[in-house]
Design a protein around this nucleic acid. Structure first.
Lengths: 343, 343
DNA sequence: CTCCACTTCTAATACGTATTAGGAGACTTC
DNA sequence: GAAGTCTCCTAATACGTATTAGAAGTGGAG
């Protein structure tokens, strides 16, 4: 009757084979037979039967009763990004995966396709907890998750909700200040800083760091692309170094410099407040600093899993990691004389 | 005041909110309320309650009762690979994710941590089906999954099990033959081919392609790293072009060439049977061919989802995709006279 | 009023495992 | 020989969902 038909063997099948109850099989298979007191002989019989039928526990059943799915969600706020930006997420993922795997969790990846945060908000709950990242976060969604007591960790600094939200960020401010100071040390007295227009934490932090560097001759430009006219004008006014906040602004800047006939690092120095994960082949290494992406991923996963396992907080719930400086090839000593210019 | 406890909401919670039974909630959530006969007004109440509590079905429970949960597994055979090889998996993933998202599936990523295939074999079953990839596949595991009727698709050619296993691979043979023919067309008469020692399909395919090119002066070396002595000897014997099977062999080759004082493409030509996903900054583009990784990922996901949805086979269950040739910068016209001394 | 059909919902159960309270024997102890 | 102590095992139940048989109510036909 109870033949193990076409389906996989269950504990009940093993129990029948070994002449014991299903509960006994469960106890044996979970490796704590002594703790409960199962005769060695019985353990052997059960093990043999399990082996013979090549039993594998049904994970769905195990998880159902365990109330944990051992799934770590990964949610990316990224509606329609170009391919190369998506690539820059990979190191984060790799870090998260590394730790998740090490601690016995699998990864459940959600895609914010078509920006339907409402639906995603629900699906995310399928995991035990979730790592979130991406610049354009939906604070409403995050707040909702927090309100419901759903465990999340953000990769990147998030201060919109005070200390409610655990995060692992990069210390943009310190690293940015360091970049500006290094330029100043190279003799650059007038420096132009190109920042993004928004007010995302990562943008604000870098702006703050640039200010905190304490270098007087820094001028800030917030906004999009720049052109050759602008860089030429800056150079004419004595600017010898340009600092771009992001890869996009850096690309715009180098284009404009090329158009203006200015070469770096010969004529002017160029730096970026971050690094380029997927540089064009043959492109020089840009001066600036590196984001410890993989480590951020690792720590985010660790933090989240600690929360899930109800571990005592191994560390602060909000962390900023140090960004290693990158000397690069695009910054050099200041070259004084402005080429030409009115006056 | 049934506040959402700390745990995820269940159907029972929604039922309480909406004043119906759990069974009704199940019927409504599965989208067939009319078929069974649920009043529109009731459907509305249930839907609202579900929305309010942001309910998602517990995948373990759904799985346990033997239904689908719109999860696509991704399993990577990659125990301890260096970072750069793992990076080369990203485009596959991106392709899989693209299609999965497009067709309403989320991704469940399993990690073959410490090569514990047995455990992973069990966990994989939490998904509806699984995309597998990686060079060092465990045939035993694959066979086990196939035996149990679990839907899988391999990225990469797999012939160990005949036509039992669906796959989406790259047409290495054709592309490899093309590379050798192009070198021959450039005037290279003696060509050294460096192949990996194993007998993985991808290795065998490329070797077959090299043979099939029909160029007589091709000599094959199977094995690991090469040194300057070896390349020098080859060159002395009239070899003017080197073809490396993999990124690793290519790296070894270029190192040896540099040590030997041979420059390419000036002194000799170099080609690779594949491409480098993460080339070193400033490195030239290597001649050879590109793997349509993203497209392979896309088609694998499509094929698997077709199987899951019991669609009529939209295409063959075993596919080989064409690899676009890459001219690159490392191959040039053959330079006859073997000589010594640069300049 | 009875019988039947129809609509709308629910009780009950199955899925496969983990866990816990406690049962059945055997063996000691006084 | 009754009570206590061990050893070894099992019955019962929970986990959250899908499914099915059928209950409860409503109304129309005869």
């Amino acid at each position: 009757m109870g033949r193990s038909r076409s389906s996989r063997p269950r504990q009940a099948d093993i129990a029948r084979e070994a002449g014991v109850s299903q509960a006994t099989v469960s106890l044996v298979m979970n490796g704590k037979p002594e703790a409960v007191g199962i005769a060695p002989e019985t353990v052997r019989r059960v093990r043999e039967a399990a082996e013979r039928l090549s039993y594998v526990a049904n994970p769905a059943a195990v998880r159902l009763v365990g109330k944990r799915n051992r799934l770590l969600g990964v949610y990316t706020f990224a509606a329609t990004f170009p391919v190369d930006v998506r690539d820059s997420y990979y190191p984060f993922l790799a870090g998260v995966e590394e730790r998740a795997a090490g601690r016995g969790y699998d990864l459940l990846m959600f895609t914010a396709s078509s920006g339907a945060h409402a639906d995603a908000l629900a699906r995310v709950r399928l995991a035990d907890g979730c790592v979130l990242f991406g610049r354009e976060a939906s604070i409403a969604m995050i707040e909702r998750l927090l309100d419901d007591g759903f465990p999340i960790v953000y990769i990147g600094r998030r201060d919109e909700l005070g200390d409610r939200i655990p995060y692992v960020g990069a210390d943009y401010a310190r690293a940015s200040a360091e970049v500006v100071r290094r330029l100043a040390a190279l003799g650059h007295e007038r420096i132009a800083y190109l920042r993004e227009p928004g007010d995302q934490p990562s943008t604000e932090d870098r702006a703050r760091g640039v200010r905190a560097a304490g270098v007087p001759g820094v001028r800030v430009r917030a906004g999009g692309r720049v052109d050759s006219g602008w860089v030429r004008a800056q150079h004419a006014e004595g600017v010898t170094a340009f600092v771009a906040e992001t890869v996009e602004l850096h690309a715009s800047l180098t284009g404009a410099l090329a158009d203006a006939g200015l070469r770096h690092p010969r004529d002017v120095s160029v730096a970026m407040l971050g690094d380029d994960v997927a540089p064009a082949p043959g492109a020089p290494v840009v001066s600036g600093f590196a984001l410890p992406r993989r480590e951020m991923g690792r720590q985010a996963a660790d933090l989240l899993i600690d929360m899930l396992d109800e571990r005592p907080g191994q560390g602060p719930r909000q962390r900023l990691l140090t960004c290693p400086p990158v000397a690069g090839e695009t910054a050099g000593p200041a070259r004084r004389a402005p080429l030409e210019g009115p006056e």
